[in-house]
């Protein structure tokens, strides 16, 4: 399937996806949108891991194993993050991270 695709194409796409996610995390006003940005960043990391597995070390299980761990951790992050947001929304009727400053001095 890789007929003629160089490795750096995958690296550039995943770098671009990571930076899109970074922009989402930094610029969004809604905490759930921030979590979506984090999901995009984790996907970019996974593309990178699998691309390096395919091009550099297809005989080792390391790339696949790390990608599988990222999957599990992304699922845990999404579950915890969204549960927190639902809890915060229930208490404050808002999911704007700028308004969640009750722990500020």
């Amino acid at each position: 399937m890789l007929n003629g695709i160089p490795l750096y194409w995958f690296l550039l796409v995943s770098a671009a996806l990571f930076c899109i996610g970074l922009y989402g995390v930094l610029a969004r006003k809604n905490a759930i949108a921030i979590l979506m940005g984090v999901e995009l960043m984790l996907n970019a990391v996974n593309i990178n891991l699998l691309a390096f597995w395919r091009y550099v070390a297809p005989n080792a299980a390391a790339g696949l194993a790390f990608a599988a761990f990222i999957f599990v951790i992304a699922a845990a992050e999404a579950a915890i993050g969204l549960a927190l947001m639902i809890s915060v929304y229930r208490n404050t009727q808002s999911v704007d991270p700028d308004k969640l400053d009750s722990m500020k001095l």
């Binding site: 610029a27 969004r28 006003k29 809604n30 759930i32 949108a33 979590l35 979506m36 999901e39 999404a78 579950a79 969204l82 947001m85 639902i86 929304y89 009727q93 808002s94 999911v95 704007d96 700028d98």
Partner: peptide, 19 residues
């Protein structure tokens, strides 16, 4: 899961997208 969270926090769904 994300769509569920969006729907459970529906009142703020259409807020300004960027800070």
């Amino acid at each position: 899961l994300i769509i569920f969270a969006v729907m459970l926090t529906r009142g703020v769904q259409l807020a300004q997208p960027a800070n």
